[in-house]
Write a protein that binds this DNA or RNA. Sequence first.
DNA 1: CAGTATCCAGTTTGATACTG
DNA 2: CAGTATCAAACTGGATACTG
Lengths: 184, 184
Amino acid sequence: MPRKKANKSFCSAARALEVLGDRWTFLLIREVVFGTRRFDEFVSHLGIARNVLTARLNALIDADILEQLPVRDDAVRTAYHLTEKGRDLLPALIALVQWGDRWLQTPDSIPIQIIERKSGKVLPPMRPLNRSGKALTLSDLDWTPGPGAADPRIAPLIAAYEKQRRIEPRPVPAPKKSKKEKST
Amino acid sequence: MPRKKANKSFCSAARALEVLGDRWTFLLIREVVFGTRRFDEFVSHLGIARNVLTARLNALIDADILEQLPVRDDAVRTAYHLTEKGRDLLPALIALVQWGDRWLQTPDSIPIQIIERKSGKVLPPMRPLNRSGKALTLSDLDWTPGPGAADPRIAPLIAAYEKQRRIEPRPVPAPKKSKKEKST
DNA sequence: CAGTATCCAGTTTGATACTG
DNA sequence: CAGTATCAAACTGGATACTG
């Protein structure tokens, strides 16, 4: 019996991917970011089945990531737009695109470059920063239980982490085998 | 007939989500980040079916995101570790977690906080920056075709974007309807 | 322990036809 | 144009039993 309905994940990113992780959903958001607004435009750009498109669009509206707004000069038609919540996906989307550009493309295959409108320059890679603006890597980070850490869906992992933290000071020590190949 | 095999997406982020977007895959990466290393640990933490776990782990190894390294003092056992490519997912994962924390959780339900190991302070939200370190929003950005823009899987979208760019100066103008509810 | 093999039910998809 | 309805085929996941 696939996919228990009750199994709502508790981790923020896992929850996020429950909405966004679908094969089509992300492409739809990309379309909207690029200005696609109408049902049949989605169909023709993506080749998505109409019933599937309906389902995805509704899921995104339910998730408050898209909204349907009336088109000016038209009493009937509507257009899909990002909500504030949808626009706030921007950092995650850019970080994901940049990772894909680094590791899944070759320099010659990158399809779209993200630039600053004013300067026309390509954005530098996003990195996690501390409050002073210093870039951090995995070994600079640590995790600490938040207010919701007691939830049984996450507690076992946290317990395991706390336990092995004493043995293994860093969450993920670099393995000895060094790697050279990039953008395979 | 679901899922055409040939339909490999071309967009970097869509490609990234073809690997990561699965319901389990992300949870597996989270486990590894937190130090889970062994097959049966994954099973017991996540309740994932063993055959599904095998498939996901192999997919991540094929994608060069995880690798299996020998365990010291053990000639037989192996342990799963992130590769460099896997560790480089960190910015995207953090951005996603932070979005989820903002929009999918309440202040009381946040399960884990990401802190700087040295200072113990919670990381500030990641944002796209320009080269001078200034934070950018959607309307500060623009998109320009890269070397691979001619690929038919992306060309229609780029063409549509270039066309409507003259009409709609900004990719996504803020809709007039203002919103107040957060973390619904 | 770390998987592999099998089974089957439930879910999802793409295609197609239809409606306001 | 913007969907809704229907359907068979394909995929997926969970459970279970088995192996080195």
